[in-house]
């Protein structure tokens, strides 16, 4: 069961105090085996919102693009740790592991990715917190890559794991969107450690936390993979 509150009893208590959820008051929240009704309710609504967003998603709708002069400088670092703790990945020994419903699972080296056709974009990254930055990324369109490795494009999810233990997952329709790229460069130069070297996902149709950095493994699966923040309660689809 995913948890939405650091202290869910307090959270519910507050909602009850505000008279907001009188209908949930019959529950015994102290019993460990007893399902937490507030969590279940929020989970169900979040799942429903995933479905609504999947229905709203139009594969032909492009995220807005911006002029070079609109790029945010200096770029803003953001992670669940300090910039000094960003993982240092040695590009020479780095490999991208492939898992799940993929025909050709041989790991990829960075040079092989750099030899693929690229797409460059100046797009806006909107954080779940509400702020936004404009940046320029370029890299391999994910739909290209998935076709190249003979992935099952009818599978439901693409999952991503990172060097720092972060992980996330996206729906296949969003993975195949033309602006969804495996980014290699940021602001015209190879990605640096704080911004996801050597490879990150750049997906301007989703919120920032759905853009994992320093990717080490990519999988295609029909089993819901969840994510670092998603498992703590952020909405999974989190489309823009």
């Amino acid at each position: 069961m995913k948890s939405f509150g650091l202290d869910r009893r307090k959270l519910l208590g507050r909602a009850l105090a505000l008279g907001a959820l009188g209908s949930l008051s019959g529950c015994d929240f102290d019993h460990p085996n007893h399902p937490d009704l507030a969590d279940r309710f929020l989970r169900a609504m979040s799942d429903w919102n995933d479905e609504v967003q999947a229905a709203l998603f139009d594969p032909r709708t492009l995220a807005p693009t911006f002029k070079p002069s609109q790029i945010t400088r200096p770029p803003r670092f953001n992670a669940f740790y300090d910039i000094s703790q960003a993982p240092q990945v040695d590009a020479a020994t780095w490999r991208l592991a492939l898992t799940g419903r993929i025909g050709d699972k041989r790991p990829w080296r960075i040079g092989q990715l750099r030899a693929m056709p690229r797409e460059s974009q100046i797009t806006r990254l909107i954080c779940v917190e509400g702020w936004r930055v404009v940046g320029q990324w370029s890299g391999v369109p994910l739909h290209h890559f998935l076709r190249k490795v003979n992935a099952d494009l009818r599978a439901r999810y693409v999952s991503i794991h990172c060097a720092d233990g972060y992980f996330s997952s996206i729906d296949m329709a969003s993975a195949l969107h033309p602006q969804t790229i495996l980014a290699l460069d940021f602001l015209g130069a190879p990605l640096t450690a704080p911004f996801g070297a050597p490879l990150r996902l750049r997906i301007p149709t989703k919120l920032g936390f759905k853009n994992p950095k320093s990717i080490v493994a990519l999988g295609v699966t029909n089993t819901y993979p969840g994510g670092y923040w998603e498992n703590q309660g952020y909405n999974w689809f989190s489309g823009s």
Partner: peptide, 11 residues
């Protein structure tokens, strides 16, 4: 309401 951002967005 919500304790933290994720909880608040969910509510």
């Amino acid at each position: 309401i919500g304790q933290w951002l994720g909880g608040a967005i969910a509510w």
